[in-house]
Design a protein around this nucleic acid. Structure first.
Lengths: 221, 221
DNA sequence: ATCAAGTCTGAAACTTGTTCTAGGTTAGCG
DNA sequence: CGCTAACCTAGAACAAGTTTCAGACTTGAT
């Protein structure tokens, strides 16, 4: 039963009716000044996050840094978590672009995915506080942020599928990708909270990537 | 400012040199009345969590429900996250006991682990709000809660190893278990935030459990 | 140019986690 | 019994996320 495909479709359908908010192709087109405000806010958010992480992103400070009234900030991003998830979307898009330029060189799909994720991991290590803010927001997000979190998830999936070099993955492969994403997020958290070393994260990523090999062998499953 | 980390460290240092706090075998033995207070607090916490989840566990309400002053509550559990993680330890211990009674019946280790996790998952489904509170606290926890979160992780590992029926696992098997835990936590989150169905979680668990088969074949790795 | 609708601003208010304080209570001990 | 240190309580106070509101500013259409 192609449950994977169904879920993705359902989820996608879920946020279409009530309208997307933080996704680029949104409902109301923003004026130039509004676009500029949005950008200033995201910049300030990333800036503050790069210092003290999640706690350092204080809504009053973001508002001040980006020259916007507090009420306006909340009009653009209805909560701190929304703001940080949008910040993550921003960074992810940037990273996807960067990764595209130099595709991973591994022989097998598993190797390429592991290499890609490790490259992303090294990027996050350069800004650990920013990583903290974004990842904590992502996992702390409640239902009200689901559409945005889902968008991040789709973006991540796209990056992994890119690394695998697949156009139309099998259900089994999509399941493997889902599990890889789970591991990726959770491993990041254990690293960020100091409960796992960088080496340990590397091992976990490499371990889970072996699942990909499994799907290649038993595709008819 | 990392106010949280500082606070917890100071608080811990103040009443006991190094030492764990919320773990049963703690440094200062509690008097009977203290033990009773602690239990009342945990009970109130679980109670409130079973209603509205993470947000419904309000420290003032917990204090009132458990007939304890707010300051005392904070002496027992230095933050809301500490409290909820301790609540989780409590529930986990209970569940481990329950699971022990009826061991899983699967043929392979992978099947038994998947079965065990699905059993735990069904238990969580019966109290989705409680699950929400505990899991969100767990992933939102910062460094100041690491010891307690680590304890939860060890407990979870023990449950999985139990299901596998292993006494001394190989490194590869431990890696697989780590990845399974990652997937378990992350899949729970996607379910709790409404981004994945119960069926989807089942698939993810079954998918990741196949990693165990891999370690059996290539043990010399 | 002018009006209506929609935005933005500054400031105050409200909520809930967390800290602090002053005084009362308890437990162990001489 | 009476002391002392540790513990507990009630309640105020503080911090940061979120909401609200009156008034000023923009924008788009007439």
């Amino acid at each position: 039963m192609p449950a994977e495909a169904k879920t993705a479709a359902e989820t996608a359908a879920k946020d279409a009716p009530p309208a997307a908010r933080a996704v680029p192709p949104a409902s109301p087109p923003l004026t130039e000044r509004q676009e500029a405000r949005r950008r200033r806010i995201l910049h300030a958010s990333a800036q503050l996050a790069s210092r003290g992480g999640f706690d350092a992103v204080q809504m009053r400070e973001v508002a001040e840094s980006s020259q916007v009234a507090l009420g306006t900030l909340y009009r653009y991003f209805p909560s701190k978590v929304h703001l940080l998830v949008a910040t993550m979307q921003d960074q992810l898009a940037h990273m996807h672009g960067t990764l595209r330029k130099k595709p991973p060189a591994g022989e097998t799909a598993a190797e390429r995915v592991a290499e890609t994720l490790m490259r992303a991991f090294r990027a996050l290590q350069r800004e650990p506080h920013l990583a903290d803010a974004m990842v904590r927001a992502l996992t702390f997000a409640d239902r009200s942020v689901s559409p945005e979190v889902d968008q991040v998830s789709r973006q991540t999936t796209a990056i992994i599928l890119d690394a695998m070099g697949l156009d139309d993955p099998t259900p089994a492969q999509l399941s493997a990708v889902r599990v890889i994403e789970h591991t990726w997020h959770s491993a990041l958290i254990t690293w960020l909270s100091g409960r796992a070393s960088i080496a340990q994260v590397k091992i976990d990523i490499e371990t889970v990537c072996r699942l990909i090999d499994l799907t290649e062998v038993r595709e008819t499953r």
